[in-house]
Amino acid sequence: MRTKELKVSAIMDGTVIDHIAAGKAFTVVKILHLDQTHETVTIASNVPSGVTGKKDIVKIEHRVLSPEEVSSIALISPNATVNIIDDYEVVEKRLVELPDTIERILRCSNPLCITNHEEVRTRFNVETKAPLAIRCHYCERSMKEKDVLRVLG
């Protein structure tokens, strides 16, 4: 137990996203654009975990996620937790929670949607959280979890 705690919080400062659904760490990396950061990012996949059997962990040094980024994680892994680290200590624990509207982070899966043709900040209204169903504010098409994952790549 002690060694696991250590593994999770062993960054000096930054963010640790824990309890990500197994296999979804790479999607988290993608939606947070961590493939483009210059900071150190550590990805652990299929880590044994008491609660769900297996989990993924993503650690990002020197970066505190915005509330918007935190909520975007809820799209792909609603049970994830976000720990903000400062001086090797967890200073804040945030539960990821899907907001009622999701702005910017997703693109619409409808190729004929205006948001895919003009520079528009995307906006989706969350209709149901489980199973996930969101509706584009512009074209009014609804997207389910599989559509969301598809546009997240």
């Binding site: 004929l112 205006i114 003009e118 512009y138 074209c139 009014e140």
Partner: peptide, 25 residues
């Protein structure tokens, strides 16, 4: 023909906007 175009127009415009058809929406 683009879906959601009238919604966008209404957000840009201060005068009222009427949608006369935005694709199949």
């Amino acid at each position: 023909p683009l879906e959601g175009s009238a919604r966008l127009a209404a957000e840009v415009s201060r005068v009222p906007v009427i949608n006369a058809g935005d694709g199949s929406n």
